[in-house]
Design a protein around this nucleic acid. Structure first.
Length: 827
RNA sequence: GCGAAAGUGGCGGAACUGGUAGACGCGCUGGACUUAGAAUCCAGUGGCCGAAAGGUUGUAGGGGUUCGAGUCCCCUCUUUCGCACCA
């Protein structure tokens, strides 16, 4: 027989809604707890990954509620972006229609799973009342000097005449028409996230972030200390600065390499007889995949520009090359090359027969130029570097920099790998960037009062080439806010990371039409006490959001420095070892399982299958196992309902009881302790559920009926009565139902979390494991407080120990209290 | 390629601080119930040797530290995530 999960689940979902259990406001005197899961892209169907992610959050929410918190758990939809636009193209529909249909479907599903959301705060990023504030923030950033325009490269399909996302240009081939993708330089809007690089490196206010995320962010920002060295061109009044972390090798610099994108490259081509050849080379490099291009094992190729610079420290004339292994995104786009002490430079110099000069000598084994097979990158003593010869190279880094600063050759500097945030997208389904181009006034921001700049609806999605918004004259043509003359709107839209960078703050005051959110409300709820989402967001989303928060602080909207004080990065749901995806055809529809087994079963399976940080491998049989467990609970309550009502609920008097009853009482209190600690301290739900299963096994094995002694009945009642409380985070509907079956009139969520009593966790005996030379040989059971000496005596007298130690010399005995005895003997 | 992680039975996982490896669940095997199946219940279940007691081996592979290593250190391999226009 199956328990009536459908009836139970709809019943309690209705009661929670009627009681407004999950709706919160500031007036409520309970302490706040803001719990947030990364909001989904509304694909229209709930994905297993959503169920997994949101089941984790909901478990925490329910636990926190029962611990006296008012939990703000909102939900929304990250509904701008490429997939909606693509879907509209395929289905000849409009993103606005499909997106809202999808949102309605997903909301319905969320409700069917019974997640405890405050639906009054729902946020939909593609609605004008949300994206209006994206535009408003853009204007504020503009005022702050954080916004600028610069040219940069995009993937361009010459055949489709459109810009492609990286995923649409994989392998340098257009996903639609298989044309070769080109790199096209266009003007785009950037946000100066690098202004905050230093502060973003400070994770000290994030008490409970996974170390790996912090490390990944640090590496992403990539701060390095170094020296900017200024090289002057021969016969021309042009300076080329380079950044190096190894100024100690400057005397060994024998050539310079510029990135193919370096602005000077174009100038160098003007009077160059090899212009065509070089231009062809540059185009080839620029269109190469960036990751491959900078990979260490990629062949280094280059071309001589015909130009020279002077190495300031020794006045040597050195050639300027263009190379594929230098990128414009890092440093100055130009590097000083020291082939003797940098592997990439070494390979390049060998290939093109460029001079190599040793300037750091290996103190252990003298380097010979002729026999060098690779660059010497380790420490050593400076040579060929007068006046710094014989100096330790590590000391020379600082000395040479100081010397260069004195001479004006260069200066100490810090650079970051982090680049400014390019927010321009040449697409339709995103927030219009509130800029107007006027022939007279140039780029002008749209005045605050004119916001939102609405995304026009009448776009033939997919039918346009270039920017879709260019094809809507009513949108495009406008008047200049400054001079009133004719002007055109910016047709780029914003990166959707912009939407998701501040949505957590909007949830604090989701329906405000006058401001993005009221400061008082944001500062009441923020920071998010627990944020939950995938590890794939470690660098980008989480850095953008941290940046945005600091920016909002600087314009006086929030008072904290960080948006998310605790972070949990959950794993993904896999099947056959791979991430579930449509393209792999290994998806499983949660709805099927909700219909067949109920939402509680799905939750329990998800939470039981692995710890939240790890991936969950989908397993049909495992789901049935979870269902079986919940059925066993249900049957227990159904069968014992009348009996439980008839027996004593507690034992006040300390009556001696048989050991099997003590064991059950121990199980009850131990399980409460285990579940509480697993949720509270470790957020490890799989072991918490395992503990409940074990406890259920103990209850099942326990003999108790009408004829049992009162005290036995009371112990039995206590053991069973713990179940609804312990199950609330994992199987909330069933928990409520069995709570009601015990005769309770109100929702279990209105009651407190269950506590345990330490005194029932004390055992009067303890087991020592006995090892001989580290191998398990025997066990002894002794009184709890048996002194070490006594334990040793008992251990030595143990029959099996005697067998192994007979005639052998005992070297030492290690005793770990309440754990083990290790007897070390001579073999 | 670079950066970050992970690797434990047939499977998902447990072992939290260096101290009994394999909790709990799935699967499998045997049994009970049943006309039969499903469901449920009971017992067993890392490998090898053994009827058993017990022994031996075992946490991706190789080395090391330690009385003792899944856990700490070094090297190698494999897998996953990210690499800036997927969200």
């Amino acid at each position: 027989m199956e328990y009536p999960f459908r009836k139970i689940e709809t019943k309690w979902q209705k009661i929670w809604e009627k009681n407004r259990t999950f709706y919160v406001d500031m007036d409520d005197p309970r302490e706040k707890f803001y719990l947030l899961s990364m909001f989904p892209y509304p694909s229209g169907v709930l994905h297993m990954g959503h169920v997994s992610n949101y089941s984790i959050a909901d478990a925490i929410a329910r636990y926190k509620i029962m611990n006296g918190y008012k939990v703000l758990q909102p939900m929304g939809y990250d509904s701008f972006g490429m997939p909606a636009e693509n879907c509209a193209i395929e289905n000849h529909s409009h993103p606005e229609i499909t997106t809202h249909e999808n949102i309605d479907k997903m909301r319905k599903q969320f409700k069917m799973v019974g997640f405890g959301y405050d639906w009054d705060r729902e946020v939909i990023t593609c609605d004008a009342d949300y994206y209006k504030w994206n535009q408003w923030f853009f204007l504020k950033m503009y005022e702050m000097g954080l916004v600028y325009k610069k040219s940069s490269y995009v993937n361009w399909c010459p055949s489709c005449q459109t810009v492609l996302a990286n995923e649409q240009a994989e392998g340098g081939i257009c996903w639609r028409c298989d044309s070769r993708v080109e790199q096209k330089e266009i003007e785009q809007w950037f946000i100066k996230i690098t202004d905050y690089a230093e502060e973003l490196l400070d994770h000290s206010k994030l008490n409970n972030w996974p170390q790996r995320v912090i490390t990944m962010q640090k590496n992403w920002i990539g701060k390095s200390y170094g020296t900017q060295i200024i090289f002057k061109m021969v016969d021309e009044d042009i300076e080329i600065p380079v950044f190096t972390t190894r100024p100690d090798t400057i005397f060994g610099c024998t050539y310079m390499v510029l990135a193919a994108e370096h602005p000077l490259v174009e100038d160098f081509l003007q009077d160059n007889p090899r212009e065509d050849e070089i231009r062809k080379f540059i185009n080839g490099v620029i269109n190469e995949d960036k990751i491959e291009r900078t990979a260490e094992d990629t062949e280094k190729i280059g071309m001589f520009t015909g130009k020279y610079v002077v190495n300031p420290v020794n006045c040597e004339k050195i050639p300027i090359w263009i190379g594929n292994y230098v990128v414009m995104d890092y440093g100055t786009g130009a590097v000083m090359c020291v082939p003797a002490h940098d592997q990439r430079d070494f390979e390049f110099a060998q290939k093109y027969k460029l001079p190599i000069r040793i300037v750091i000598q290996n103190p252990d084994k003298t380097l010979e130029l002729n026999s060098m097979k690779e660059a010497y990158v380790d420490e050593g003593i400076l040579v060929n570097s007068s006046p710094f010869n014989e100096m330790d190279n590590r000391k020379a880094i600082q000395k040479i920099t100081e010397w260069m600063e004195e001479k004006g050759y260069g200066y100490k500097t810090v650079i970051y790998r982090l680049r400014d945030w390019g927010i321009s997208r040449q697409r339709y389904w995103g927030t219009p960037i509130p800029i107007v181009y006027c022939d007279e006034c140039g780029a002008v921001t749209v005045p605050e009062d004119d916001l939102p700049v609405r995304l026009p609806k009448n776009v033939a999605v997919g039918k346009t080439r270039k920017n879709p918004l260019l094809s809507v004259p009513e949108f495009l043509n406008t008047t200049c806010p400054k001079c009133g003359g004719p002007a055109q709107r910016e047709t780029d839209t914003m990166d959707t990371f912009f939407d998701s960078s501040w949505y957590y703050a909007r949830f604090c005051d989701a329906n405000n039409n006058n401001v993005p959110f009221e400061k008082a409300k944001a500062n009441y709820w923020l920071p998010v006490d627990q944020y939950i989402g995938g590890i794939e967001h470690a660098c980008m989303h989480l850095l953008y959001a941290r940046f945005f928060h600091k920016f909002m602080r600087d314009i006086g909207l929030v008072v904290t420095d960080e948006p998310f004080s605790n972070l949990l990065t959950q794993g993904m749901v896999t099947k056959d070892g791979a991430k579930m995806s449509k393209s792999k055809g290994n998806t499983v529809d949660p709805q099927e399982y909700i219909d067949r087994f109920g939402s509680d079963t799905l939750r329990v399976f998800m939470l039981f299958a692995s710890p939240p940080e790890k991936d969950v491998e989908w397993n049909d049989e495992g789901v049935k196992g979870a269902f079986r467990f919940l059925n066993r609970i249900w049957m227990l309550f159904k069968e014992k309902q009348a009996f439980l009502k008839s027996i004593p609920k507690s034992y006040t008097k300390e009556v001696e009881m048989p050991s099997y009853a003590k064991d059950l009482r121990y199980s009850t209190h131990f399980t409460i302790k285990k579940v509480t600690e697993d949720i509270h301290e470790r957020m490890q739900f799989n072991t918490a559920i395992a503990a409940i299963m074990e406890h259920l096994n103990n209850i099942s094995a326990f003999q108790c009926d009408e004829s049992s002694e009162k005290i036995i009945q009371a112990v039995y009642y206590e053991a069973i009565a713990a179940l609804p409380k312990l199950l609330q985070p994992f199987a909330p509907h069933l928990s409520e139902e069995i709570w009601a079956m015990l005769g309770n009139q109100t929702s279990i969520l209105e009651t407190s979390w269950i506590t345990y009593d330490d005194k029932y966790l004390i055992k009067d005996q303890t087991t020592y494991v006995i090892q001989i030379n580290g191998k398990l040989r025997s066990k002894i059971v002794v009184g709890l407080d048996t002194p070490k000496k006594e334990v040793e005596k008992i251990a030595r007298a143990d029959e099996k120990v005697l067998k192994y130690t007979e005639g052998k010399e005992i070297i030492k005995i290690i005793i770990i209290p309440k754990k083990l005895v290790n007897i070390v003997i001579k073999d």
